[in-house]
Every structure is written in structure tokens, then in C-alpha cells.
């Protein structure tokens, strides 16, 4: 792995790690310039950032190296004209085929601790790097694995559903109502899967954009039923940030975690993780149109 590739991998993992553990403050999003489009010359421009207010770029640009575009015909396309500024990244997607596109990131991350020659070792990074770096049969190995998705959807001409096929990995949103067929005041239905199985009793947060101009942010929560299904009625037309996350087992980072060097806090020996854990998060930006 080249140094550049390694840096990108670490950066991508850093973004992923920032998601579930600071979701209450910093929200990652990809906002397309339009979600419902017509005609064969259609493009969308997408802003991608991690911010406090929705959808204002006020904190950090989102890394776009891992953004994948899933076309309605099953092909995978690249983002175009990508640029990263201080507070936001932008890129374009050309909708060269009719149907629904998914613009998405999916990141696996690992935090780990183990003992090597009587010394505690720590790791934080991508699952791929972990597989390469952790010694086989490491003693006292503890891992907290994460799987994070961030998605948005855009449709040219008639909506299609090929991009919604679940992969069985992490938290996934399965539309019952098409995400590009949302209208303010109409009930919409979605289903959440965790590793391919219905994610029951999952708390789903919905937060409308434009929060700067409201005294209260306007976030609201809904819960999935035993079948993983939830219903939502978008109160107003506009962009919405949807998020849900699942944590099991040990999910704290322990000393030497956030802000600390992966090998341990500066000036002190690394501390082991308290135990094994798993977290998965899902984020989407959805648009409800005027009736």
C-alpha cells in the first residue's frame, strides 16, 4: 500500500469512526442539488459535509474518496468533478440512464487492542488494514467493529428499485415507499435491516434541513416495529437527514481512543479495550416534495 493510499484509508476510517460516536453533534450528509429529474441531460451536484446545523457546512468537509454511485442498470459509476474545501466537498453525478441512482459510502472500521511481548497494542482503522496489521492469534485480542453507511438517492424519469437490493451487511434501509416519491403530508414506509434481518425496535431520527432559521431544530424520532418497518410523515417539503444506529457489547473507546494516537495516549502506555463490541449506523438524506 502506498503512503497516499494508506493516508486515504486512515482518513476514510476516521470519518467513519466519527459518525456513530458523535452523532448527536456532528452529522454527516450528502445533499444532492435535486432528487427528481427529467430528461437525458440530467446531472446532480452533491454537497458532502459533516456539520452541526442541517444542511449548512459549518464543521468539516466529508471525504469523498469512498463515494460510490450505483446506477439503475446495476453498474457502478464514478463521481465527477470532485473537490474538497474547508467545510464541504462537492462532486457531480451524471444521470446517463433513466431510473434511480444510489450515491453511497459504506465503511467498515475496527478498533482493537491486544498484548504483544507484554505490551498493550492499539489499532484504529479500516477492517482491511486491521487484517493486515494485527498478528494472527494475538493475545487478549478485543475488537470493536463498526459498519457505517451514508446514502442519498436521485431519480431521472420513472423511479426504479434495483439499487435497493440489500447486501446483508450492517444497517440497511429498504424502501417500501420509494425515497424519490416522498411528498410532504403523505405517510411513507421504510424497513430497516441489520445484517439482512429485520431491525426491530430501532430508533430512527429524522431532522429537517433549514434549522438555522428555526428556534427549535425540529428533529423527531420514530421506532421500527418487530418487522423492522417504520412509517413517517414528513411535515414539510424539504431535505431531511435520517439516521439510525445499533450498538452491542462494548462500544466505548477506552483510554487511548479518541484524540489519542492509535498506539496509546501520548506520555502513557496504551490501555486495552474493555471488551468486544459492534456498532452499525445508517444515514440518508431524503427529500420530501411539495404536494
Amino acid at each position: 500500500m502506498t503512503l497516499k493510499k494508506r493516508l486515504l484509508a486512515v482518513a476514510a476510517a476516521g470519518v467513519a469512526l466519527a459518525l456513530p460516536l458523535s452523532a448527536s453533534a456532528h452529522r454527516a450528509w450528502m445533499v444532492p442539488s435535486a432528487t427528481v429529474l427529467s430528461g437525458d441531460g440530467a446531472w446532480v451536484g452533491v454537497d458532502a459535509a459533516i456539520s452541526n446545523e442541517l444542511f449548512y457546512a459549518d464543521h468539516n468537509a466529508m471525504r469523498v474518496e469512498g463515494v460510490t454511485v450505483y446506477a439503475p442498470d446495476g453498474s457502478v459509476e464514478k463521481i465527477q468533478n470532485a473537490a474538497t474545501g474547508k467545510y464541504r466537498s462537492t462532486f457531480d453525478v451524471q444521470l446517463s440512464k433513466p431510473g434511480t441512482y444510489k450515491i453511497a459510502t459504506a465503511t467498515s472500521s475496527v478498533m482493537a487492542s491486544w498484548t504483544e511481548n507484554g505490551e498493550v497494542k492499539r489499532f484504529r482503522g479500516s477492517a482491511d488494514d486491521f487484517a493486515k496489521q494485527a498478528p494472527a492469534g494475538a493475545a487478549d485480542l478485543k475488537t470493536i467493529r463498526g459498519f457505517n453507511r451514508n446514502e442519498t438517492f436521485v431519480t431521472r424519469d420513472a423511479p426504479t428499485d434495483t439499487v435497493f437490493k440489500p447486501t446483508g451487511k450492517g444497517l440497511e434501509l429498504v424502501p417500501v415507499t420509494h425515497p424519490n416519491d416522498l411528498v410532504a403530508g403523505e405517510a411513507a414506509t421504510f424497513k430497516f435491516l441489520l445484517d439482512g434481518k429485520p431491525a426491530a425496535d430501532l430508533e430512527v431520527t429524522l431532522a429537517p434541513g433549514g434549522s438555522r432559521y428555526r428556534a427549535a431544530p425540529g428533529d423527531f424520532k420514530v421506532k421500527t416495529g418487530p418487522d423492522g418497518v417504520f412509517k413517517v410523515t414528513f411535515p414539510e417539503a424539504g431535505m431531511y437527514w435520517l439516521n439510525a444506529s445499533v450498538r452491542t457489547g462494548e462500544t466505548g473507546r477506552g483510554p487511548g481512543g479518541p484524540g489519542g494516537a492509535p498506539g496509546g495516549a501520548p506520555g502513557g502506555p496504551a490501555q486495552p479495550l474493555a471488551g468486544n463490541g459492534f456498532n452499525a449506523s445508517y444515514t440518508a438524506t431524503l427529500e420530501a416534495l411539495r404536494p
Binding site: S38, G39, D40, G41, A42
Partner: peptide, 9 residues
């Protein structure tokens, strides 16, 4: 520019 179809939506 767009054969008008861009704005049909």
C-alpha cells in the same frame, strides 16, 4: 440546450 425535457418535472 435540453430539448425542454429538463423542466418537465
Amino acid at each position: 440546450e435540453d430539448k425542454g425535457v429538463k423542466w418537465l418535472k
